[in-house]
């Protein structure tokens, strides 16, 4: 079995170098700051719309990694790591892209999992990509990074939407676990789904809506963690999740916005 040596439970940010993806830089959490370090004209509006009246601050402990330049606007890899918010229970990680026509990309309730997530995003144009992390005290901690792209990601039809094959494979789910050096597990799952945004002519919104990570007590026990993807998540999504030592997943179940179900078991 392989161990994932580059990973630790509280991964430090790689040193700057020519290949290092752009990373959030926010102010110290001791001095709550409400001025957007990404200097986006849409931030105030987004905060009101998505975070409501709850207190929100930019927090460098919420790290968002994405390539500073992404030529393929249909598949922009995003990694969020909020594990530095030690001692504070993370209730929700909300992914927002300021200049996407559909701002909200995903909501993740990590539950028993680490507050860490990887996925791929469609971007309509260059935009800040944010992770707003809500802790149990009701505060939002916000990190983010700019991604430059040539655009068009949200108003293009999916490849699957043009393929006669896609229906047979719809919601086919693959999942695999890797051991981590800290005794926990890394999980990846991939689901065949067109994730159509509804913004391409004649193709209605059709996307995954909820995916639960099941524990050993499934199906009766509560989900270990819940992903709620929205339209901007890339076609055939791949999610990367981390579990701490002692938390064991047995599989996933979920559905899309048309009620099509998915399920997959995790083999030990």
């Amino acid at each position: 079995m392989l161990s994932i040596t580059p990973l630790t439970a509280h991964a430090t940010q790689p040193s700057s170098g020519p290949t290092t993806p752009a990373t959030s830089t926010a102010t110290s959490p001791e001095n709550p700051n409400t001025a957007d370090p990404l200097n986006s004209p849409r931030w105030d509006e987004l905060r009101r719309a998505w975070l409501g009246d709850a207190p929100a601050e930019f927090d460098s402990r919420v790290q968002v990694q994405a390539p500073a330049m992404a030529e393929d606007a249909l598949n922009v890899p995003v990694r969020v790591d909020a594990s530095r918010l030690r001692g504070q229970r993370v209730e929700e990680i909300l992914i927002l892209a300021d200049f996407n026509p559909i701002v909200r990309a995903l909501s993740y309730s990590p539950g028993s999992a680490e507050p860490v997530l990887g996925f791929r995003l469609k971007l309509q144009q260059s935009s800040p990509v944010r992770a707003a992390v809500r802790t149990a005290d009701g505060r939002w901690h916000v990190g983010g990074t700019w991604v430059a792209t040539t655009g068009g990601g949200c108003t293009l039809p999916s490849t699957g939407s043009a393929s006669p094959e896609w229906q047979r494979q719809l919601n086919h789910t693959e999942v695999r676990a890797w051991p981590r050096v800290d005794g926990g597990q890394r999980l990846k799952l991939r689901i065949v789904h067109p994730m159509d945004t509804g913004l391409a002519d004649g193709i209605p919104a059709f996307h995954l809506e909820e995916i639960s990570l099941l524990g050993k007590e499934a199906p009766t026990g509560a989900a270990l963690a819940v992903l709620r993807p929205y339209e901007p998540v890339a076609e055939n999504p791949v999610f990367t999740l981390d579990l701490p030592a002692g938390v064991v997943a047995s599989g996933v179940s979920g559905r899309d916005n048309n009620g099509n179900r998915l399920t997959a078991e995790l083999r030990p």
């Binding site: 392989l2 161990s3 994932i4 040596t5 580059p6 990973l7 290949t19 290092t20 993806p21 990694q65 994405a66 390539p67 890899p77 995003v78 990694r79 990887g118 791929r120 695999r176 890797w178 890394r186 990846k188 990367t240």
Partner: peptide, 9 residues
């Protein structure tokens, strides 16, 4: 090793 794309970058 199960790395995510940004970890590879």
């Amino acid at each position: 090793q199960g790395l995510e794309t940004n970890e590879v970058l």
